[in-house]
Computed example of a mutant assay.
Amino acid sequence: MVSEQGCGNFIADGGSAFVTEFDADEPAVRAISRSLAAVKGVSETELEPLYHRIELDALNRMIRHANGRDGSVRVEFRVEKCTVHVTDKRVIRIRFDDCGRSVMNGDR
Rank of each mutant, 00 (worst) to 15 (best):
A17F: 04
D13G: 10
D97C: 01
A24I: 13
S72T: 14
A12T: 14
S102F: 00
L50N: 13
Q5K: 14
S35I: 02
E80Y: 05
P27C: 06
A58E: 15
S33R: 15
A24W: 09
D57V: 14
C99I: 06
R93N: 09
I11F: 12
H65P: 04
D97T: 07
A28Q: 04
S72Y: 13
V84A: 07
D98C: 05
I63H: 07
N60P: 00
D107I: 05
C99R: 00
V2L: 10
T20R: 10
V75R: 05
S102A: 04
V2K: 11
M1V: 13
D57H: 12
V42W: 00
S3K: 05
C82K: 04
E76L: 12
C7L: 09
R101H: 07
Y51P: 00
M104V: 15
D97Q: 07
L59W: 10
D88V: 07
H52T: 13
N9D: 15
A31M: 04
V73Y: 00
S33Y: 00
A17L: 08
R34E: 10
T45R: 03
D107V: 03
N105F: 11
V2R: 10
F96L: 14
A28P: 06
R108G: 12
V39H: 03
E44S: 09
F96W: 07
A31Q: 02
C7N: 09
E21D: 12
H85G: 08
L56H: 00
L56F: 01
E46A: 12
R101C: 02
V73F: 06
